[in-house]
Amino acid sequence: MQSSLFDTLKKFDLLIIAAIFLLFIPLLTMQRTTDFMIFCVFVLAFDLIYGYMGRLSFGHMLYLGVGAYAAALSAEHLSGNPFLALLVAVVAGGAVGLLLGPIIVRTTGACFALINLAFNQVGFFLALIALAEWTGGEDGMAAFYDSVWIFDFGDPKVIFGFTLLCLIAVVYFVRRLTDSPFGILLRTIKENETRAKFLGYNTFFYKLLAFVLSTSLAALAGALTMLNYTYATPSFIDPTRNVEVIFACLIGGAGNVYGALAGGIGYMVISNYLPNYIQRWEMFLGIALLVVVFRFQAGIWGYCRALITARKGEVKA
């Protein structure tokens, strides 16, 4: 009985995810909930590289920042159309991924992490100092979007609905992608890249493709943040904030769509409420990271899944 219940629940997962976020509205403000969902999109983008392909990026804020600034610059120089801004941001994120990817994806492990971090640092410098004429440097830049048809993004309800649609679409896309042969190949690369090469796959191409998809999704998250706040600051591209998405991905459970969502919500809840009570937030984050790494590697979703499999075993017995 139990197992069939979980299977039924899984069929309606997109609806359940939407319902969970709708339930958050009375608990938080609408803009906060939108923030939660945007962060979940970002965690999904990160998880595509970390959880599925097994490459830890320590510089994903770069791609988020590129998306945010691209959306802001599009509003300032092209037109106030929000959809054009989203398109520009996703294309810009993909372009940056395509430009840096050939250098980055050839490396693994520690090199992969730190090269991303180094490029993130370069991007931060560009946004803060070198291109300050366009980005506003430390002051940041504001962007104003026109309302198109029913999409008036000045209204929190509209942006909430639109972000929810985006999140559902991204969840669906990532799930389809990772269930496809391409996703299986990504997991093969994670487990043993030499064998994947042995089977005749050009792993470089697939790694690059996954990387570009991930950077585009991260840029989408950045553009949505722009729509939500209409203000871009260098904190969107700050390399020291990379640890947030890594932590979110770890506590949720890497390599799973639901894990990424659970981690995104979990991290946002922690980071929104705990700093009010805890003075030393960075220290808390560090200790929590150590606990996760040493005792809780499977994350929230891994824990739930172990529980479900145990239940299933009981039912069969």
């Binding site: 970390y50 960075e282 220290m283 984050l285 560090g286 200790i287």
Partner: peptide, 23 residues
């Protein structure tokens, strides 16, 4: 173990230490 965990764990140590220095 996966070296990713080592990166994350030593980064966590850095975060704790830097916050302690600030303290």
């Amino acid at each position: 173990q996966s070296i990713d965990y080592a990166i994350i764990a030593t980064y966590a140590v850095l975060l704790i230490g830097v916050d302690a220095c600030k303290w």
